[in-house]
Every structure is written in structure tokens, then in C-alpha cells.
Design a protein around this nucleic acid. Structure first.
Length: 527
RNA sequence: GGCCCCAUCGUCUAGUCAGGCCUAGGACACUGGAUUUUCAUUCCAGUAACGGGGGUUCAAAUCCCCCUGGGGUCACCA
């Protein structure tokens, strides 16, 4: 029994697609589950200039999620190189082999002619197949054209008299009629191999046993199977998993549609979170802006690998009829291609947040603290090398807000604990509603401020009693003063427990903020 | 348009291969209630689906056929 070998073969595009990551995850899972190898091959036949720059984000995404690879960039392997552009000799050899065996042919037909034929066929609603005119050339004629340096591509000769079929792990038997297929170009005029051909050569050479890829590749499969056969390769097994669809739809999640997603109600939540967090981090929002389509977005916003991994694993796969929260280890132990569904699954931001919140809740206090400190430093809300007092303060805040911390980036919206009274920003709408508009709000706040100033102790418990007493004295309801107090001191309508917040801020800061809030409200009333 | 794939609550899914245990289960979201004299958490409850039509069968979400709908793909891209 040969060991299971799977691969993920990204093109170096400068970012890692979240849907591609799901495909990679399933490959990794299948290899690990079977004690096999997971290989990373870089399909860079396009010969990009900034290869390294375009590749690093991809490798980083794998590292961040903790998905290791047994062979590939950085780690090497016996069957390398693992960059398709460097495997050219292998491709050329395979090409020669097909040519020599008469299973491929040099096509001298000008590209324009081929295109014209295709268009004509389409117009007449006729199935287009290759003309194969170049096949009529005698060996001498071909030799003469070659000697004259006539441009040509190499096409694979499709055996038109038969059918190809695969037994897909997910889809079962899928069959195609070869008579309907065009002879695919396998080498360009400059001699470079095309994806469909290079992939076949490389998959065979790397001894890939299971080709697990997204459904959109299903239509490439018959050609690849035919090529494998022509080359005398052992056929890999195929598993075409459904692609990841955009939230609220069934269409493939694509980076090209970012602008559309921004407006999509189902997707907005993630963009909003990103705008908030990334804005505070001062992360570039230019052309290559981070978006929820990219894995890096989740890392930058402060998602946990466990949260993202959990969501990705559940997109098209389930362990059973009830298990939702799963560690990578649990998924790995239970993964099977048999339980992968056939239909496209759309990414659900709500569900993702729910997994994320679960895993955030699983973190120890120290882990939460570390993550929050990292983000606060990055946002410049605390110094680069925070002293013990600062750390202790952050720790207190983190404990206070633990329940509402979904992603680490959330800590940045709790900046009331880290800015001075002057730097405090207010939720204007809520401030108007709870402080400016109510007739008696300012008077009450002033009276309360006086009461607070008289207190010797500023502990949460004591403050609670004080406010309680204040409410009773004024025959108010708690709800008539608490929101205004919260708005005045934190600038927000929502937040951590009110009294511990006051305690943490301290008497001087609280009084100062109350004064500023009152002043603010009065100046607004005048206008 | 050709070829191919897919079809269970709004969403992710269980159940489909081996028809009856399904008056279709879970989760997220949503709604209501309890707790919290703020905010959030937590707990409880509720709304909500087998796309349609024919068969086969004692019995169909499950098997067969047709229709409809959705999607992928049709490059000297990967």
C-alpha cells in the first residue's frame, strides 16, 4: 500500500484566497488522516517577476494556521524542485515523448485562424473541434517548417472515438464524450508548457495519489486523465470538492467581486469589522487592501487560527449530526472524503464569528492578554515595550471585557481605557440621545459628579452603592442615569461593567470626563 | 449556447449509497422569555426546509424518469 500523497498547488498571486485555503485544508487533512504526505507545489508557470513577494503571503497563511507541508518551498524534498517553472526539463521530456509516439502534434495553424473557426462554429451552433489541418503535413513539410522557424504550438491528440470517465470520491462516476473535445494546447509557441499539461506531469512525478481540488477543475479532468494515460502514468484518484461561495449566494467567492461584496448585506459584517480594526491599526487600505476573501485579513483583524480552521472545516464537511466546535486535531482524526457534501457552501460570517467566539472563550487569561497586548501595541494605544503597570492595566481590562472580546481587534474599540480624557471619542448619536436631549440629564450628571467627588473610596462595589443611593434620592430609575454616566465616561453606549470601569479609570479621570461631557452637552444645546 | 455539476429550515448541515426508527435532528442567525437594577454573557422557548410533476413500492427526503431552478467551465490563464 503506497502512502497517501496530496498536494496543493497555488499560483504565487500575492495573497492566499480563503476558499483556496479550504481546499488546501482538505488536502492536508486527508494526508494527515492517512499518515501520508502533504506537498506544496508552486505553480508559477506565468514567470512572475516578484516571485518571492508573491509567494510569502501564501506560505505565511499556512504557517499562521499551523498547516505544515512535508515537501515544498523552504523544506525541500526528494522529488523537487517544487516550483513548476523549475521543472521544465520534466515537462519537455514528457512533451517529446508524446510527440515521438504520435500522441501529440505540432500545430502550425495561426491562432487567428483557429479562433475564427471556433467563432464560426459557435455562430452556427455547431460543436467546435480542432481542424487538425497540420496533421495532414508530411514529415518533410513539418521538418521544413521547423527549419524555417515557423511558429507553432503543440496540441494533444484527443482520441475522439471514445469516452473518459472517472470515479470521483465526491461525485461518483462522471463521464465525458471525447468526440466533443478540442485538442488542447499543451505547449505554447515559445515551448513553455500549459497548466493542464504541467500539472499532469508534475502530479505523476510527485506521485500524488489523491487530487483533491475545487469543483471548477472538474472540466479539466478528462484532458488530464487522457494525458496521464498517454504518458503511461498511474492515474491518481480524484475528489472534486464544492467551491466556497460568497455569503448569501451560490457563486464562487472571488476577489474580483470585492466591491459587490462590500454592499452585500450578508457580507457587510466582516467588512465593517475589518474597517474598524484595520483603520485603528493604520493598515494600508490601498489597491491591495485586505479583504475577507484573503486569509491575511483574518489574521490582521485578530481572528484565531482555531476559529478560522473550524469554520473552514465545516464548510462542506461535517463530523456527524451535532458536533460543531472542533479543534484541528479533532477534525484531522475524523476527516473523511465520504462526508464531504456535493453542493457549494457559502461562507457565513455569522457562523464564522460564532466559531471564533467559542475558541476565544477557550483561551487562557494569559493567551488573551498576550493577544490584546499585541494589538494594543500595534495600534499605538500602549507603548512598544509596555511596563508592568500597563500590562496589569490591560489585564484588568481584558478580564473586564472578556465576554465581548470576539477577535483580538475588538480590544481596540475599548480604547476608553487607554486614552486620556482629551483623546476620548464619543458615539455622537448615542451622546445626543442620552446626554444632550434628555431635559434633566446634564443636571443629574452634575449632581452625581458632586456626589462621586465626595467619596473616599472609589471601588466598584462602593460606587455601585453610591449610585444606587443617588437614584433613590432623586426618585429615578437606574436606567435614567446609567446610560448617561456611561456615555460621559466612556463615550460609548455599550461596554464593560459600569462600576468596575469607573474604578479602573479612577476618581480624577472620571470626574474630568464628567466635566468634559457636561461642557460638551451644554455647548451642543446652545447650538 | 455546448459540456459537466448541484438541489433538505434565511445560512452551514444530519438523514439519501443499504426505503420504514423522519409528525425531518443539530448549529448559526432571528423572535420571545428568564437572569443581569447599565452593557454583554448565560439559560429556556419559538418561528423556519425535503423545488415541481410523474412513476416503483404496503411504505420515498431516501430508488427511477421528466421538468424547473442554481452553478462551474468552455484561453498559446492557473
Amino acid at each position: 500500500m503506497t502512502s497517501v500523497r496530496t498536494r496543493f498547488a497555488p499560483s504565487p498571486t500575492g495573497y492566499m484566497h480563503i476558499g483556496g485555503m479550504r481546499t488546501a485544508l482538505f488536502n492536508w487533512l486527508w494526508a494527515r488522516k492517512n499518515g501520508g504526505q502533504f506537498i506544496l507545489r508552486i505553480d508559477d508557470t506565468d514567470q512572475q517577476r516578484n516571485m518571492d513577494e508573491a509567494l510569502q503571503p501564501i506560505l505565511e497563511a499556512f504557517r499562521w494556521l499551523g498547516l505544515d507541508w512535508d515537501e515544498g518551498p523552504d523544506v525541500g524534498g526528494d522529488l523537487g524542485p517544487y516550483f513548476q517553472s523549475m521543472r521544465r526539463p520534466l515537462h519537455t521530456a514528457a512533451l517529446e515523448k508524446l510527440l515521438a509516439a504520435g500522441l501529440a502534434y505540432r500545430d502550425f495553424e495561426p491562432a487567428e485562424d483557429t479562433r475564427a473557426q471556433r467563432e464560426a462554429a459557435e455562430k452556427e451552433k455547431r460543436v467546435y473541434v480542432s481542424s487538425r489541418d497540420s496533421l495532414q503535413l508530411t514529415a518533410d513539410q513539418v521538418a521544413a517548417k521547423l527549419a524555417a522557424g515557423e511558429p507553432h504550438v503543440v496540441r494533444f491528440l484527443i482520441p475522439r472515438d471514445r469516452r473518459v470517465s472517472i470515479n470521483d470520491h465526491i461525485r461518483g462516476r462522471v463521464e465525458w464524450d471525447c468526440s466533443l473535445m478540442v485538442d488542447p494546447v499543451i505547449a505554447r509557441a515559445d515551448g513553455s508548457p500549459l497548466y493542464n499539461f504541467a500539472t499532469v506531469v508534475d502530479d505523476a512525478h510527485l506521485r500524488i495519489t489523491h487530487v483533491i481540488r475545487a469543483e471548477e477543475h472538474l472540466s479539466n479532468t478528462p484532458v488530464q486523465v487522457l494525458l496521464h494515460e498517454a504518458l503511461g502514468n498511474e492515474l491518481p484518484e480524484f475528489a472534486h470538492i464544492p467551491f466556497v461561495a460568497a455569503p448569501g449566494g451560490k457563486k464562487k467567492l472571488s476577489k474580483r467581486d470585492i466591491d459587490k461584496y462590500r454592499k452585500s448585506p450578508a457580507f457587510q459584517k466582516l467588512f465593517k469589522l475589518g474597517d474598524e480594526v484595520l483603520g485603528r491599526l493604520g493598515v494600508d487600505a490601498g489597491d491591495q487592501a485586505l479583504s475577507p476573501v484573503m486569509v491575511a485579513y483574518y489574521r490582521e483583524v485578530g481572528f484565531l487560527p482555531a476559529g478560522v480552521l473550524n469554520a473552514l472545516a465545516r464548510l462542506g464537511w461535517s463530523l456527524d449530526d451535532e458536533t460543531e466546535n472542533m479543534s484541528l486535531q479533532t477534525v484531522q482524526q475524523n476527516f473523511s472524503l465520504e462526508r464531504v457534501v456535493k453542493g457549494a457552501a457559502s461562507l457565513d460570517p455569522d457562523k464564522l464569528m460564532s466559531y471564533q467566539a467559542y475558541w476565544m472563550g477557550q483561551l487562557s487569561d494569559q493567551e488573551k492578554l498576550d493577544g490584546c497586548v499585541r494589538f494594543l501595541v500595534k495600534a499605538g494605544l500602549i507603548p512598544e515595550a509596555p511596563d508592568a503597570d500597563t500590562i496589569a492595566r490591560v489585564q484588568t481590562v481584558v478580564q473586564l471585557v472578556a465576554d465581548r472580546l470576539r477577535v483580538f481587534g475588538d480590544i481596540l474599540s475599548m480604547d476608553e481605557f487607554f486614552v486620556t480624557a482629551e483623546g476620548l471619542s464619543y458615539d455622537e448619536k448615542e451622546f445626543q440621545k442620552r446626554v444632550v436631549r434628555p431635559e434633566d440629564a446634564v443636571d443629574l450628571l452634575q449632581a452625581l459628579r458632586k456626589r462621586l467627588a465626595e467619596q473616599e473610596s472609589f471601588s466598584a462595589d462602593h460606587l455601585h452603592d453610591v449610585v444606587q443611593q443617588f437614584v433613590a434620592d432623586q426618585s429615578l430609575k437606574f436606567g435614567q442615569i446609567a446610560p448617561a454616566l456611561r456615555l460621559s465616561v466612556t463615550g460609548k453606549a455599550k461596554g464593560a461593567d459600569l462600576f468596575p470601569t469607573l474604578e479602573l479609570l479612577g476618581r480624577d479621570e472620571c470626574l474630568l470626563r464628567l466635566d468634559r461631557a457636561v461642557g460638551r452637552a451644554e455647548s451642543m444645546k446652545v447650538v
